[in-house]
Each structure stands twice: as C-alpha cells, then as structure tokens.
Nucleic acid binder design. Structure first.
Lengths: 245, 245
DNA sequence: AAGTGGTCTAGACCACTAT
DNA sequence: TAGTGGTCTAGACCACTTG
C-alpha cells in the first residue's frame, strides 16, 4: 500500500499557504473584483504571522496580476480587461487614425452538443451542453474580427434569455453581471492560416490572404474553464511585440 | 533658470538603488555570466543595509531574469539562451519527430554602410559601419529559417577574421568569446507577410504562402544595442502561446 | 487625524550544497 | 562542518489617502 503523503500544503512555506488561501477566498467570492481585501494588519494577526510574511504572500498575488496595491488606500482584487487585450495582437484604427475599441454584433446564438475537444477544454460532463455565439467585431462599420464563442449552458442560462442586440460590446462584464461568472486569466494560442472564400468575404480580404487565429480558453479564479473562443482577423493588421531575457 | 533637481537615485528606495548598482557592476563586467556574485552577507554589510533590503534588490533582478539563486550555492549572473527561444514561435522537429535545434550556415558576410533605421536601432554614429551576415538555419538539411544579421563593426572586428564555416550554430556564445559582447535582453516584433518567389524557394514553400518575420534588437546589460536580426520562417510551423491576466 | 500600504531593521533559525 | 540562500519575526518609521 502506498503510504499517504502529508498534504502538500504543510510542506509549503507559510507565505505560499497564505497565497493559496487568499486565492481560495477570492475564488469563493469573499472579495469581488474591484473590492479591497482586508488590511495587512488584520490579515497578519488573523493568520498569526508577521506582517513581512503576509506581505510576501500578497507580493506573489500582485505579481500574478490577481491583486493590486494602492498606498494609503488598500489592496484590491484586480479586474482584468481582456477585451482590450486584442490590441496586443491587432492594431485597430478608426478613419481618423486613432486607436479604437471595435464594436460587437451577435450573428447567431444556439444551444449545442459540444464536440470532444470542446468538452475537454471546458471540462464538461458527458451530457452537458454549450451555448454557441457567432460574433463580429467592427470598426467604422467594417468587419475586422470574426469570433466563435462557447460557454457551458450550466451557469450561463441567462445568455439564452437576452436579446442579441442587448449583449453590448464586451462579454466579460456581461458574464459577471448576468451569470456571476468572473474571468480571471486566459490562455491564448496564435496560429496563421489562409482565408477561404467565406472568411475572405467576411474580413474584406482576398481568398488565400493570411489570417490570424487566436484561440482562447478563459479561466476563473479557481482555474475552472469558463469560456472558449476562436477569433479570426486579417494578418495585415497583425503585430506582436515581446521582450525576452 | 531651471533649479537642478537632486539625482533621481536619492529619491528612490534603497533596494532600487542597490538593484541599479548591481546592474551597473554586472554591466561593467565585475561578475561574468555564469559566475556567482558576492554573498548576501558580504553585500549587505558592504552596502550598509540589512539583509532584508539587499534580498529585495536581488529579488528584483531575479524577477528580471538577470540573476538566478541557488540555495546553498550562491547567486549567479544568468546567461540567457536566446537561440533556443525560437521554439517559442516555431516548432522544429527532426525526421524522428523529436524537437531539434536547427544547425546554421553562413551564406554571406560583408561590411556595409547602415541605412537610417539600422543606424537608429543600433545607436550608431554618422560614420559607423556594420557587419552584415546572411544565414540559414537547417533541420535535416532543409532550410527552415532565413536570417539577416547586423552588428556594429566597432567591437565586432573579430567576426571579419573568422572563416564562415567556423561560426558554429549559435552566435551569442561567439560574440561573448570573440568580441566580449554579452547579450542580456532582446525585444522582438512579429509580423506576417506573403512569400515572394525567392523567399518561397529558400524556405521550400509556394510563392504567396504566409511567412512569419521576427525582428529582434538584442541589448547588453547596460541596455546598449548589440545586434539587429530579421528572421523569416514558413507560417505553417508557427504557433505561439501566451498567458494573459 | 486616522488608517493604509511602503520601506527597512537586526536579527533567528532552517534547508541545502560543497568539501 | 562551514557556508550559502530561504523563511520568518516583531517591530519602527515613512508616504500617501481619506474623512
């Protein structure tokens, strides 16, 4: 028989255990995005550690992008803004030349049976269904991005009642307000392909032109998958900068 | 008259000043890449600060990728390995299917007058010249990447004496050994284009196929530009993953 | 003025590495 | 065994924000 190992928690340094417990409390909704968590003195006395140890735990979460500190005000749960993150890959400019946030248009909404890869990515059970959105993003009336979006039906029922015209330009605030689902992190994979006839027509390019695909899995604070998304855009607006060490 | 401001250093916290001074000493060559810096007790007594403050300075440099710590052994100047960093963008596999480091072949070497953008990127004076290398990277004898590389002639004279066949597969160790130039960080920009006839022939794809361009500026520890490089590869081997928060 | 995070101290003890 | 970085303490004082 395999001897039972001690819980990994006990082997970790205290500041790691504190980090994990703070994440757990955030994931449980004890502090909502934008809210201040307890003060350092409160937390350190409650946990029975010195302020230095507690600060080190918070340092980790700040480095991970989960918390932000503001001297004299407090420490806050950070609300990520992923929709503007498309600027990391595409540079959208309006007719006036200024950077601009694309608007959104829902083309189609349906409840579907997920295929195997989607079921795996969203960690769904065998009978679970998904809500599928087809969406376009526009600048000055021109389609710049074409998106397919899938979320689990369980937890997102509210999306099936809302008129497509009322979805607005940003989905994550909608998820939070209507479905109490908070996106905390995401993993994206970039690939390059060539536009087929339909994609070329949608994006206003020529068939065979290179197009970028961004495939995203969004996770909540507990690491549970919340949304899968596949975004297509013309490659001529694509540029990505990275610093390496 | 504009009142002279105090040096920004004095306004910074001590741990930031310590960080800056350690970078200065590394850039000056006091500790070479791979070498251990002084111990924490030595440094903290020499600087007249507590160990906690010194550790915070070192924490910053570890987070920046400049130093690595090894418990029981010491703190070391990290030697970045950029050439394997192409794996972040391209996935090269040998015939056996295993990931493989491409070999290199120098096609051409010349001393040239830089154009304006290159002069600006390398921060060269009006009369400075550059060494230009054209290079191919191969897997199983197939060309997978085509590179144009420029370094300032001043400081890299040794490259003009070396037989092209003796350059080896990795340039940065060569820069360090022959020219005493150490690459510490780099900035890369990705773009997508379509292969012209010549690029298609080189990379073994069809004209019009999408190709990736990675444009890199490499810097030393002092932030001085050391090398400019433009790498082209077929887009079908391209994949890039990123985690966002 | 009261409360928050930011900086810094002067240690102690532990875990790991090399000899 | 000696020396290194890793963890942690129990504070002090500073800089900033808010009422």
């Amino acid at each position: 028989m395999i001897p039972s190992l001690p819980s990994p928690d006990e082997r970790l340094p205290r500041y790691q255990q504190l980090r994990d417990d703070l994440v757990r409390r955030i994931a449980a909704g004890e502090w909502a995005p934008g809210e201040a968590i307890h003060t350092e003195v409160e937390l350190s006395t409650a946990y029975g550690v010195s302020t230095g140890t507690l600060r080190k735990a918070i340092d980790l979460l700040v480095a991970e992008g989960v918390l932000t500190r503001s001297q004299g005000r407090g420490t806050f749960v950070r609300r990520p803004r992923f929709d503007s993150s498309l600027f990391r890959f595409f540079r959208f400019k309006s007719a006036s030349g200024n950077p601009v946030q694309p608007t959104a248009r829902i083309l189609q909404r349906s409840v579907e049976e997920p295929d195997d890869s989607l079921r795996a990515a969203l960690q769904l059970g065998p009978d679970a269904k998904v809500i599928h959105l087809s969406r376009q993003r526009l600048v000055d009336g021109r389609v710049v991005l074409s998106e397919e979006i899938w979320v689990p039906r369980d937890g997102f029922e509210a999306l099936t009642m809302l008129a497509p015209a009322d979805f607005g330009d940003l989905l994550y605030p909608l998820y939070e307000r209507l479905c109490h689902q908070v996106v905390a992190t995401a993993r994206e994979t970039l690939r390059v392909a060539r536009a087929d006839a339909q994609m070329a027509q949608t994006l206003g390019t020529a068939p065979g032109d290179p197009v970028i695909n961004v495939s995203r899995v969004a996770l909540d604070y507990a690491g549970k998958p919340v949304e899968c998304r596949s975004t297509w855009g013309a490659a001529d607006g694509f540029q990505y900068e990275v610093e390496i060490r």
